[in-house]
Amino acid sequence: MARPDTVVNIAEKLSRVDGHWAPKTLLEANGLELKAAKLKGEFVWHNHPEGDELFIVITGELVIQLAGREDVRLGPGDMYVVPRDLDHCPVADEECHVLIMDAAGVVNTGGVTSEMTAEQEWI
């Protein structure tokens, strides 16, 4: 686990992420966790009543489908905050590397339990 005053190299951490849709926690600050993930394909529709969810695309392209709204399309260097409690479904046609920030302890599938629900793991 990264502590304050510790350098974290994003590329090195992403190289340690195996599989898709299984975010790994890099650090925690002020009650928020920063996670690295590799995404490919379509995730499950879900929401996070605990708080907003920030996506930052490092490589590739990510589409975030939003209930009742236009899809959001992100490329490298783009970021987007999915508002608390809004149903959404991330989709990546090709492998996409992202950073995700949300409240500490948030489950990646929100209140939905599926085969894509990941256990928290620190790298």
Rank of each mutant, 00 (worst) to 15 (best):
R3D: 10
D5Q: 14
V7T: 04
V7S: 01
V8E: 02
N9R: 14
I10G: 02
A11E: 15
K13A: 15
K13V: 15
L14D: 00
G19K: 13
G19S: 08
W21S: 03
W21F: 13
W21M: 03
A22V: 13
A22P: 00
A22R: 14
A22G: 07
P23C: 06
K24T: 12
K24M: 14
L27M: 15
L27V: 10
L27H: 05
L27Y: 08
E28A: 11
E28F: 00
E28C: 05
E28V: 11
N30W: 10
N30K: 09
G31I: 09
G31C: 08
L32K: 13
L32V: 10
L32G: 02
L32S: 10
E33N: 05
E33R: 06
L34P: 00
L34C: 12
L34Y: 01
A36M: 05
K38V: 06
K38N: 06
G41A: 09
E42K: 14
F43A: 00
V44Q: 03
V44D: 11
W45L: 00
H46T: 03
H46D: 02
H46Q: 13
N47F: 06
N47I: 00
H48F: 12
P49G: 11
G51M: 09
G51P: 10
L54Y: 07
F55G: 04
I56F: 07
I56G: 00
I56N: 02
V57I: 03
T59G: 01
L62A: 02
V63E: 14
I64C: 00
L66H: 03
A67I: 01
A67M: 08
G68T: 08
D71W: 04
R73K: 15
G75E: 08
G77N: 10
D78P: 00
D78Y: 02
Y80Q: 09
Y80I: 09
V82S: 12
V82L: 13
D85S: 15
L86F: 10
L86V: 15
L86C: 12
D87G: 01
D87A: 07
D87M: 07
D87F: 04
H88K: 08
C89Q: 13
P90F: 04
D93I: 09
D93F: 06
E94I: 00
E94N: 12
E94S: 14
C96L: 04
H97I: 01
H97V: 08
V98S: 01
V98W: 00
V98I: 13
V98D: 01
L99H: 07
M101L: 15
A104M: 11
G105T: 14
G105H: 12
V106Y: 06
V106F: 07
G110H: 11
G110F: 07
V112N: 05
V112D: 02
V112P: 04
T113Q: 14
S114M: 07
S114G: 04
E115L: 10
E115R: 11
M116K: 15
T117S: 15
T117V: 10
A118K: 06
